[in-house]
Amino acid sequence: MDAATKKKLQQIACKVRMGVIEGTYNAKSGHPGGSLSISDTLTYLYFNKMNVDPSKAEDPDRDRLVLSKGHTAPALYSVLAQKGYFSTEELKSLRHIGALLQGHPCIHIPGVDMSSGSLGQGISAAAGMALAGKINNKSYKVYAILGDGEIEEGQVWEAAMFSAHYKLDNLVAIVDNNGLQIDGPITEVCSPEPITDKFAAFGWHVITMDAHDFDSIDAAFAEAAKVTGKPVAIIQKSVKGKGVSFMENQVGWHGTAPNKEQYEQAMSELNAQLKELED
């Protein structure tokens, strides 16, 4: 990836993170930790990979993304706002009564391809979209983002079996391996490890990447695009709370909103990062 593209993506990702903080702060609830760990990947997909256009949101040929780990909707909404599906002002009313942006993704929100949030379900819907692409001879890709805790759900493995059986090479599942779930580290709660071996054993092509390095992200998706005959699982090594010093690798920031002081500190850190990127 060239330096200019990389810098542009880093700047957008920084703004996406600000939207996550803005949204969860104003909502006084929500899930900042896992939103921040997928911000770079979502930015890369929507700004450098996916064939999507806010002016043709329902285009049958568009690429699709299902946020199976739906609780990290703030990151999806923030990237959709940056992309122009709706105003960034909407982020301030996230989770409010009468607001466009629901606590978890809802298909009726512009740019959202599937309602999700009850864990383990999004991957099946993504598989269905990919199957429809095969039936209809469409060339679109379907991306599904799952949490590493989420894959403890049995339905994920039903979907994994199904996708390999039907050779859905137009499906890419990204597992956000930040290592933390609500009750603690995934290896202590009820370990889903070894994640790469499991997907490989289910017949998937497995790729690992650094979720906060755009070169690594770019390489992973380039490899994924070349795979034929099987679905692709990208296990992304990530940092929960990435970008906000006091949230990084802290399980407590899974589902807690920042208070005013924390909001100000987080925004100040992100503003400093953005300024550095713009210099």
Binding site: P60, R64, V66, I107, D113, M114, G120, Q121, G122, I123, S124, A125, A126, A127, G128, M129, A130, L131, A132, G133, I135, N136, K138, G154, Q155, E158, A159, M161, F162
Partner: peptide, 15 residues
């Protein structure tokens, strides 16, 4: 469970 989810995904794409 997966079958119902796959059905949902198919329906989003017009099947």
């Amino acid at each position: 469970a997966n079958m119902m989810g796959v059905a949902a995904g198919l329906a989003t794409a017009g099947k």
